[in-house]
Simulated scan of single mutants.
Amino acid sequence: MFGCCLLQQKNLRVLRTTNMLALLTESLYISNPDEAAILNKVAFIEDIAQGHVNGSVKCFSLKKKKVDENQYHTVIKGDTVPKLAKEYGSKPKAGTSLMMTMSLRVTRSCM
């Protein structure tokens, strides 16, 4: 079905119980000291992440969508769930919390 992907049949729970298209990858092993050292390098992690994006796009024949910036809110340090709920005319669910240490874009439909 996906010519670009190496398909393997294993008796793994994640494969048996997932009922959707999925891509399972293994980049390196932290149990290998040489590979664990490489995983400490931010540039390498970014390259791996970009490789996963490129592979997913190819494997699933994904097409880039036009993004309406008005559909997103950038969550920044200091934002709280009650503050965002008030801004968007919503009420937070009991027990919902938010602690931001970096910026995050979320769809407005999630709020």
Rank of each mutant, 00 (worst) to 15 (best):
Thr18Asp: 04
Thr101His: 06
Ala22Ile: 09
Ser103Thr: 08
Thr101Ser: 08
Leu23Glu: 09
Pro92Trp: 07
Val67Gln: 03
Cys59Gln: 01
Gly55Cys: 09
Glu46Lys: 14
Asp68Glu: 02
Leu98Phe: 09
Ala85Lys: 10
Cys4Lys: 13
Ile45Ala: 13
Ser27Tyr: 15
Thr17Gly: 00
Val14Phe: 05
Lys41Trp: 10
Val42Arg: 12
Ala37Met: 02
Pro33Arg: 07
Thr107Val: 06
Ile45His: 06
Arg13Asn: 05
Lys93Arg: 12
His73Pro: 00
Ala37Arg: 08
Arg13Met: 07
Ser31Leu: 07
Gly95Asn: 04
Lys93Ser: 14
Glu69Met: 06
Asp34Leu: 05
Gly95Met: 01
Ala22Gly: 09
Ala49Asn: 15
Lys66Leu: 01
Thr25Phe: 15
Ile30Asp: 14
Thr25Tyr: 15
Gly55Ile: 05
Met111Ile: 14
Ile38Pro: 00
Lys41Asp: 14
Asp79His: 05
Leu39Gln: 03
Met111Tyr: 13
Leu23Val: 13
Ser90Arg: 12
Arg13Glu: 08
Thr96His: 12
His73Gly: 00
Met1Arg: 08
Ile38Lys: 10
Arg105His: 13
Ala37Tyr: 03
Asp34Thr: 11
Cys4Asn: 11
Cys110Leu: 15
Asn40Ile: 02
Phe60Gly: 02
Leu39Ser: 01
Lys66Pro: 02
Pro82Gln: 09
Lys64Pro: 02
Ser27Asn: 13
Lys58Thr: 03
Asp47Val: 14
Ala22Trp: 01
Ile30Trp: 09
Glu46Gln: 15
Val67Tyr: 04
Ser97Val: 04
Ala22Leu: 09
Thr96Gly: 08
Ile30Glu: 12
Cys59His: 02
Asp79Pro: 04
Cys110Val: 15
Lys91Ile: 11
Arg108Ser: 14
Ser97Tyr: 06
Leu15Val: 02
Thr80Trp: 01
Tyr72Leu: 00
Leu7Gly: 11
Lys63Ser: 01
Glu87Asn: 09
Thr17Met: 06
Met100Asp: 02
Ser27Arg: 05
Gly55Glu: 08
Cys4His: 15
Thr101Pro: 01
Met111Thr: 14
Pro82Lys: 07
Leu62Thr: 00
Ile45Lys: 15
Thr25Ser: 11
Asp79Thr: 04
Thr74Met: 00
